[in-house]
């Protein structure tokens, strides 16, 4: 389990993290989302023990991470920008990883490198950005980590390799109960792989939910009512937009209950859809008008 309690960090004038708390349960695949500059990468660098916090607590497996090698060997981390040494080959990098991480699995490593098609004697600096990501994935997965922490992991990867990576990670989750934390702007992809979501902004966690809680308690509706009919008044309307006779609503509540309620007013047209993670994100964070902001909270 990863637990963060009132974590704060300031860089000069910038309050990067502002009393942030979060919990990532064991075996969860946790998607960390937020607009650019929300503090996601800063938070992640605290979780893996690169930054020391100004105040607050970070515990992984119940222990603090900073300067704690015993905990760090259980964590695999892939940063957004990969800072590998320019004079090394993939083989050198593997030797380094194997010497640092006690659980490093040589056999599994061979399988991974066969899948990714990278040759050991290739110089890291000669690899493309995507190939460097693949190389770091094969290092990270061969560590046999309990925690995998990924910052924009599939950035720069082609669709085939993206699928390969997610497939491998999901296999690891199914077989070994690995806990995964991933930050990404590709919400469509997060929706497939995550079961928990944390939305952050301005250095704070706005909300933390399981994906099913998020998606099942809010629906998007388009309907046209016959003349003279009104919407039932016990609906929890979060957002409303009318175009001609067509009303577009975002409602809090379960899909079936809402459909049943709306059926009473005998709509001429009714379309009930769950909200995608992307829509939740946009309505939650993109609303310039006050009424659109924070309806999930």
């Amino acid at each position: 389990m990863i637990e963060v309690n009132s974590l704060s960090k300031r860089f000069d004038e910038t309050q990067a993290l502002n009393s942030l708390s979060m919990t990532v349960p064991d075996g969860a695949v946790y998607g960390l989302v937020g607009p650019n500059g929300a503090g996601k990468s800063t938070l992640i660098r605290h979780l893996v023990g690169i930054y020391r916090q100004d105040s607050g607590e970070i515990r992984v497996d119940g222990e603090p991470v900073f300067e704690n090698p015993a905990v760090k060997t259980k964590i695999a981390y892939i940063p957004d920008e990969i800072p590998y040494w320019s004079q090394s080959t993939i083989e050198d990098l593997k030797r380094f990883y194997a010497s640092v991480y006690p659980a490093f699995d040589q056999e599994y490593y061979q399988k991974l490198s066969a899948q990714f098609g990278l040759e050991g004697k290739q110089m890291l600096r000669r690899l493309s950005k995507g190939q460097q990501k693949l190389a770091s994935f094969q290092m990270a997965l061969a560590q046999r980590p309990d925690y995998v922490i990924l910052d924009e992991p599939v950035d720069g990867l082609d669709p085939v390799n993206r699928r390969k990576i997610w497939g491998l990670l999901m296999t690891d989750v199914a077989e070994r109960g690995t806990t995964v934390l991933v930050s990404s702007h590709n919400l469509r992809e997060l929706e497939d792989v995550c079961d928990h979501v944390g939305i952050m902004n301005h250095g704070k966690m706005l909300l933390e939910r399981t994906l099913s809680e998020l998606q099942e308690n809010i629906v998007k509706i388009q309907l046209v009512l016959p003349d003279g009919k009104q919407l039932p008044d016990d609906l929890q309307i979060q957002y409303k937009n009318t175009v001609g006779r067509l009303q577009q609503l975002i409602l809090r509540g379960k899909q079936e209950e809402i459909s049943a309620k709306l059926a009473e007013s005998e709509p001429l047209f009714l379309d009930v859809l769950p909200l995608t993670l992307e829509e939740i994100f946009i309505y939650e964070l993109g609303g310039t008008e006050h009424e659109i902001g924070s309806f999930v909270l």
């Binding site: 695949v29 699928r163 997610w166 497939g167 491998l168 999901m170 296999t171 989750v173 199914a174 077989e175 497939d192 792989v193 995550c194 079961d195 099913s212």
Partner: peptide
Amino acid sequence: SVRELASSLAINPNTIQR
């Protein structure tokens, strides 16, 4: 199996379990 589907579809095993 849940594991097979999670790998081949690249989706969360808990989703398949559900």
